[in-house]
Design a binder for these strands. Structure first.
Lengths: 141, 141
DNA sequence: GTCTCTGCAAATCGTTTGCAATGCT
DNA sequence: AGCATTGCAAACGATTTGCAGAGAC
């Protein structure tokens, strides 16, 4: 089964009409697990699909998020980043090099864990900011 | 000891020159624990301090955050909200009524808990989004 | 032919920046 | 005088909106 077919299947499984821009964007997301923002997605695909509009990238990512195949990541205040990995995990953003790392989150013990408060949780984000290992080592030289 | 004096003391303790806008903003933050954004702070204080500029609110909040007397809350992608409560806790934002609730977070078990990865954590945010108790009840009627 | 999807341009809005005016020591 | 603080207006940048044209069934 070709990669292309997998992408189309993935879209159809999630009730998304598999148009060309949507296939391209989904492929990009699978191959570039860097929690990209809209600009990164757009400028990566735009060269091989010159008609692509940034508005389409916005539309598509909103659709993907609604359908649950990506999660929006609000670790920055000035942009949304997108994560194709949707199982529970957190993120660490290095304020020096800008890299975003996936962090395994095994358990969050909070008021909401017990459901005593009867709040209906739709999304959960665990975000850290700081200096990553690489940058700490770099700074020590 | 008057409230005013407490505010000045608080600022001085944190090496902040207690100017009038800073005192007013700090007072607002203590009296209105609603995780306000810049606009809310500005429009609340502006009537009794007509010279106040929104730029000053931005400057002041950035300063307060640097000095550690407020935390920036990135639960929304399009704005920063500020929390005068700085001990460890999380937040729940109701996507229906917009209210932001403080949530007690007792423990977060993650890769970073063990410090094996030697990442230097500067901030931690635990953010939930969903429907709050009140709105769930309202919807059931 | 209708309904969906896309692309372009303008508008919106939170935030940042540059700079002059003011205030404090 | 010199440095910190403030205020105004313009600039910026991510996102949204309106709408017209293209595409699919």
């Amino acid at each position: 089964m070709s990669t292309e077919l997998n992408l189309v299947t993935k879209l159809k499984e999630n009730n998304i009409n598999p148009s060309l821009p949507r296939i391209e964007i989904l492929e990009y997301l699978y191959k570039n697990r860097i929690h990209p923002n809209i600009e990164e997605i757009y400028s990566a695909i735009s060269p091989k699909m010159s008609s692509l509009s940034k508005a389409t990238v916005y539309n598509t990512m909103e659709l993907f998020e609604q359908k649950g195949i990506v999660n929006g990541l609000h670790i920055e205040s000035n942009e949304i980043r997108y994560d194709i990995r949707t199982d529970r995990h957190g993120h660490f953003k290095c304020i020096e090099c800008g890299a975003i790392y996936d962090i395994e989150v095994y358990d969050v013990k909070s008021e909401l864990s017990t459901n005593n408060l009867k709040f209906a949780i739709i999304t959960e984000e665990v975000n850290y900011r700081g200096i990553c290992k690489n940058c700490i080592e770099k700074n020590n030289n």
